[in-house]
Amino acid sequence: MNNNTTVDARGLSCPQPVILTLNAIKKMNDGEIIILVDTETSQENVCRAGKSQGWETAEVQPEGDAYRIILRKEI
């Protein structure tokens, strides 16, 4: 099963990207969450939010003016 979801948090300032990430995590037991953010603050905060819930940061890729973060959790 391909368990993944995408959260577009571009244009939002903290703590909104963190709230959206935590909400997405609540709906998933495992899999991959792709989060798009456009500030470094949001990027660091989203990675921490994931870590606090047991989701590892699999990838952070600069994408134009934004960052594409992949959080992953495997059971």
């Binding site: 903290c14 703590p15 963190v18 990430t21 603050t41 989203v46 921490r48 870590k51």
Partner: peptide
């Protein structure tokens, strides 16, 4: 809260 990423931009 810091561990959850609830950190203001000013801190960074």
């Amino acid at each position: 809260y810091a561990n959850m990423g609830l950190i203001p931009a000013g801190a960074y």
